[in-house]
Simulated assay, not measured.
Amino acid sequence: MASGARHNARMGDSASAKPCLFCEIVKGERPAHLVLDSADAVAFLDARPLFKGHTLLVPREHIETLPDLPEHMLGEFFAHARRLASAMEAALGAAGSFVAMNNRVSQSVPHLHVHVVPRNRKDGLRGFFWPRHTYASDSEAADYAARLRAAL
């Protein structure tokens, strides 16, 4: 299936198709704590973070998987991921970061997204059994997003 066909199928050209959650965030139709808002990509806090500050980076355009990402977008997209990984250390005092992506299998939203997660030694993340942490409040999440934005 061509990437344009995937785009149409996911975006809901028919009444029965589900709209893309991440496209709704990109368009401002669904609330999210934005960390990065650029011409080609958006990053926002994960609603179910592994650790506070866990950020999802998505292309503005609806692209389902990494193999579907056009060559001309690859460099800039991953430059954003690199900046986010650096921001985890600068803004949150993390010792490092975990950067990951799923393609179809375990991809909870069928819109390309890169997880950038702050990491510290002995933080409890082991293999692929990941604890989830929640923000105490919406204002705490907003504070994390603001700190990361400032570090970018």
Rank of each mutant, 00 (worst) to 15 (best):
A2Y: 02
A5D: 14
R6H: 09
R6A: 01
H7A: 13
H7T: 14
M11K: 07
G12H: 03
A15F: 14
S16V: 04
A17G: 05
K18V: 01
F22V: 03
C23D: 08
E24L: 01
E24W: 01
I25Y: 00
I25E: 01
V26S: 01
K27D: 09
K27W: 06
G28H: 13
R30P: 03
R30A: 01
A32Y: 04
A32N: 00
H33V: 02
V35I: 06
L36H: 14
S38D: 13
D40H: 12
V42G: 06
A43Q: 07
A43R: 12
F44E: 09
F44T: 06
F44W: 02
L45I: 11
L45S: 10
L50P: 13
F51T: 11
G53N: 02
T55K: 05
T55V: 06
L56V: 03
L57A: 03
V58F: 00
V58R: 07
P59R: 13
H62G: 00
T65H: 04
P67Q: 13
P67T: 08
D68K: 11
L69F: 11
P70I: 10
E71K: 13
H72G: 05
L74G: 05
L74E: 09
E76Y: 04
E76L: 01
F77E: 03
A79L: 14
H80K: 08
A81W: 03
A81N: 05
A81H: 09
A81K: 08
A81V: 02
R82C: 04
R82W: 04
R83H: 08
R83Q: 15
L84W: 02
A85E: 08
A87V: 06
M88P: 09
E89K: 15
A90Q: 03
A94Q: 13
A95E: 14
A95P: 02
G96F: 15
F98P: 00
F98M: 12
F98Y: 07
V99F: 00
M101I: 06
M101G: 01
M101V: 13
M101S: 07
S106I: 03
Q107C: 04
S108V: 01
V109G: 05
V109S: 04
V109I: 14
H111M: 10
H111I: 09
H113C: 12
H113L: 08
V114E: 05
V114K: 03
H115M: 12
V116P: 07
V117L: 02
V117E: 06
V117Q: 10
P118T: 06
P118F: 01
P118A: 00
R119A: 15
N120Y: 10
N120V: 02
R121N: 11
R121M: 11
G124R: 11
G124C: 12
L125M: 11
L125G: 09
R126S: 13
G127S: 03
F129D: 06
R132H: 12
A136D: 10
S137I: 15
S137M: 14
A141H: 11
A145R: 00
A145P: 01
A146S: 15
R147C: 10
R149G: 09
R149C: 02
A150L: 15
A150K: 15
A150D: 10
